[in-house]
Amino acid sequence: MSYEKVCRVADIPDGGVIGTEVGETPVALVRKGAEVFALHDICSHAEVKLSEGEVYDDTLECWLHGSCFDIRSGKPTGPPATRPVNVYTVKIEGDDVLVSLAQES
């Protein structure tokens, strides 16, 4: 599995989200304490950046229509979205966050 360094852990606010890219793929990074989660950064409902939304518990909420996605699985937890977003594998090496675009199963 190929990983790309995308940022440092400290670049992601604890309980927050930032947007980045792995190659040309937009990725939203969510940090909860020492854990970092990576989701496709485009809402499956309205095609806007999820990284401009808010994190609540284990949910990332889209800013436009309020679609909510589980940060671990990418599955929608609230309407209007009905399709999940891809989630990607994250690895922490020291202070660096690395992401693989290979989808988690």
Results as ranks from 00 to 15, higher is better:
102 A>N: 14
65 H>P: 03
5 K>W: 04
100 S>H: 10
105 S>E: 15
47 E>R: 15
2 S>R: 15
96 D>Q: 15
84 P>E: 00
86 N>S: 09
34 A>H: 13
48 V>E: 04
83 R>C: 02
12 I>M: 00
10 A>W: 12
61 E>V: 09
5 K>R: 13
27 V>G: 10
93 E>C: 13
37 F>K: 05
67 S>K: 03
40 H>L: 14
95 D>L: 09
20 T>P: 08
85 V>F: 00
92 I>W: 06
15 G>R: 09
57 D>I: 05
64 L>K: 10
21 E>F: 15
77 T>G: 04
14 D>W: 12
76 P>S: 02
91 K>P: 06
104 E>R: 15
72 R>A: 05
89 T>Q: 14
6 V>C: 14
55 V>F: 06
22 V>K: 12
86 N>T: 08
75 K>V: 02
84 P>Q: 00
14 D>V: 08
9 V>I: 15
98 L>I: 00
4 E>F: 10
23 G>H: 11
48 V>D: 10
86 N>V: 00
88 Y>E: 05
74 G>N: 07
57 D>W: 09
102 A>R: 12
99 V>D: 04
45 H>W: 03
67 S>Q: 12
10 A>L: 13
56 Y>F: 12
16 G>R: 14
16 G>P: 11
25 T>G: 10
91 K>V: 04
23 G>K: 05
77 T>H: 01
33 G>P: 07
36 V>C: 07
100 S>I: 11
82 T>H: 03
88 Y>R: 02
52 E>H: 01
33 G>Y: 09
36 V>H: 10
